[in-house]
Computed example of a mutant assay.
Amino acid sequence: MFEELYEEMENVNVQFVGMSTETARYDFGIVFTNMFFGKPLVVCMQTGRSTLLCSDEANSVEAIQRAFHIDDFGEATRVAKYFQERLPSMPLATQY
């Protein structure tokens, strides 16, 4: 038995992005939603790994490496830079 905490339905904007570097290709889906305090949900279409991410958090290359299991720091830096430019900045807020 479980207790349902919420069930929301929402029409959202989704942006699909493909990018490549010298050594790798990345395909992401970015879901812009009002859920999760408006923070976009970023999904790697190749691995299924996902994270809630705003441009401020993309400043942490290590966070990008952890979220998407990118071993190469240079690759993660390029992906992080892309998200820094494309994702909205979010005000600091207590989430839970």
Rank of each mutant, 00 (worst) to 15 (best):
A80V: 06
P88I: 09
E7P: 08
R49A: 07
D27V: 03
C54Q: 02
S55D: 01
A93G: 01
E22K: 15
Q95N: 08
Y96E: 09
N34M: 14
Q95I: 11
F73W: 11
M1H: 13
F28V: 04
T33H: 08
G38D: 13
T51Q: 04
E22L: 14
F32H: 12
F28Q: 00
F68L: 00
C44M: 10
V61P: 01
G38F: 10
R78Y: 06
E10Y: 11
Y26H: 14
M35I: 15
Q84S: 02
M45Q: 13
L92W: 05
G29T: 11
P91G: 06
F68G: 00
T23L: 14
T77S: 10
Q65T: 03
E3M: 11
M90P: 02
H69S: 07
V12L: 14
T33G: 06
A24I: 11
Q46M: 11
D56H: 03
E62V: 02
I64E: 01
Y96Q: 12
A24T: 09
M45N: 12
Q84Y: 08
V61C: 04
N59C: 07
G18P: 04
E75A: 06
P40V: 04
K39L: 05
N11G: 10
N11F: 15
C44Y: 04
V17K: 07
D27E: 13
G48T: 07
S60A: 03
G38E: 03
V42I: 15
A80M: 05
S50W: 06
A93N: 01
R49W: 06
A67V: 01
V43C: 14
L92F: 09
S50Q: 11
F37G: 12
E62M: 05
F28L: 03
R49C: 05
C44L: 12
A67D: 00
G38L: 05
G18R: 14
V12D: 14
V42G: 02
V17Y: 10
S20T: 14
A80Y: 04
E7F: 11
N11M: 12
Y82D: 01
S20W: 11
M1Q: 11
E62C: 09
P91C: 09
T51W: 00
T94E: 06
F16P: 03
D27T: 05
Q15G: 01
N34V: 05
M9L: 14
N59M: 05
S60V: 03
I64H: 02
E8S: 10
Q15R: 07
A93I: 10
M19N: 11
S60I: 07
S50H: 05
G48Y: 08
E75G: 05
A80S: 05
M90G: 01
T21E: 13
T77C: 09
R66D: 07
V14C: 10
G48Q: 09
Q65R: 09
F37T: 05
I30D: 06
V43H: 07
R49L: 12
V14F: 13
R66Y: 04
N13F: 13
R66I: 07
D27A: 12
M35N: 12
L92E: 12
H69Y: 03
A58C: 00
T47P: 08
G48E: 09
S60W: 03
R78P: 02
R49K: 06
K39H: 07
E22S: 15
S89H: 09
F73Y: 08
E4N: 14
M9E: 14
M19C: 10
A24L: 06
N59G: 04
T47V: 07
V14D: 13
H69R: 05
Q84K: 06
